[in-house]
């Protein structure tokens, strides 16, 4: 590394900015995460293993990761649609729709959770129509997916939008001149160009959803083994002053998320490599 550091670059300030970046990330990300691991080390391996594999905990992993993946997948489809509409068409109120996409970011998640709960409750505006059909949203995994889809909506839209804007219409015209139908142009020409951006959006949406807490506590009902997400389980462990157990579960969640994001990253790199100029 010293060779790299001392190499004269046309851009000044490499040492300063890199030093600051390392310090910043160390304080903000690495320090809390290592505290998490250190706290977990208080336990013996047997204690650790029995905590993180308890049936209630395993059920919560499945729910947390399952609903987060489902919400991210839903947002890939509909986020792509929203981005498409915002880029390809000109209509009255487009600016307004564009601004609306970011609202789930700005709203406190607890407010979102309460609003969604009252809407989807059996007596709510939407819930009263779903209840007779046998569709239960509130206090069910479906409700968690609804809340997670809401809070992670902007990610896919905002990652796909600029790429779609840059996509030249010439390649589409070329494909049309070669006899491709609209559907073929979309699947063979446009979609492959968007994959890296879609994967990025998916990864961000998933990462955001898997750690979500505020909006879900209201809509899920927190029934152990059924609608209890992992972050909530950690929270209840903390309330019972079982700190080591809470951090142990946190470590498992961190590890799983890290592996998933790494896999998405590799997929993205693979998609990107074929896209290079």
């Amino acid at each position: 590394m010293p060779i790299l550091l001392h190499k004269r670059s046309i851009l000044p300030g490499f040492g300063l900015t890199l030093g600051f970046t390392v310090l910043y990330l160390g304080l903000l990300v690495l320090l809390p995460l290592s505290a998490l691991v250190i706290k977990t080390l208080d336990m013996t391996w047997a204690q650790f293993w029995s905590t993180v594999t308890a049936p209630q905990v395993v059920a919560s992993y499945k729910l947390s990761f399952g609903t987060a993946l489902a919400a991210a997948a839903i947002n890939v489809v509909f986020g792509l649609l929203v981005a498409w509409v915002l880029v390809r068409y000109h209509f009255y109120g487009k600016r307004f729709v564009d601004a609306m996409v970011d609202l789930p970011f700005a709203l406190p998640t607890a407010v979102a959770g309460i609003a969604l709960t009252s809407l989807y409750a059996p007596t709510g505006w939407i819930g009263q129509w779903l209840e007779p059909l046998g569709i239960r949203v509130v206090f069910a995994p479906l409700g968690i997916i609804v809340a997670l889809t809401f809070i992670s909506l902007p990610f896919v839209v905002r990652t796909v939008q600029p790429v779609l804007e840059d996509l030249g219409k010439e390649v589409e015209e070329a494909a049309a001149s070669l006899g491709a139908s609209r559907l073929q142009i979309f699947t063979h020409i446009i979609l492959p160009e968007l994959w890296p951006a879609i994967l990025t959006g998916f990864a961000l949406a998933f990462a955001r959803a898997v750690g979500e807490f505020g909006s879900i506590v209201f809509i899920s009902g927190n029934i152990p083994m059924k609608t209890e997400i992992t972050p909530l389980l950690i929270f209840s462990k903390l309330e019972q002053f079982r700190y080591a157990e809470a951090t142990a579960i946190g470590v498992v969640m961190l590890g799983a998320s890290f592996i998933l994001l790494l896999v998405i990253n590799f997929m993205q790199r693979w998609a990107n490599k074929r896209m290079a100029f």
């Binding site: 030249g168 010439e170 390649v171 015209e173 070329a174 494909a175 049309a176 001149s177 006899g179 491709a180 139908s181 063979h188 020409i189 492959p192 160009e193 074929r274 896209m275 100029f277």
Partner: peptide, 20 residues
């Protein structure tokens, strides 16, 4: 439309499909 006209079109900036 261009799809039905049986014309070959060559663009200034090639418009090749870069993922293929």
């Amino acid at each position: 439309s261009i799809r039905d006209r049986k014309v070959g079109f060559v663009f200034q900036h090639y418009a090749l499909f870069r993922h293929m």
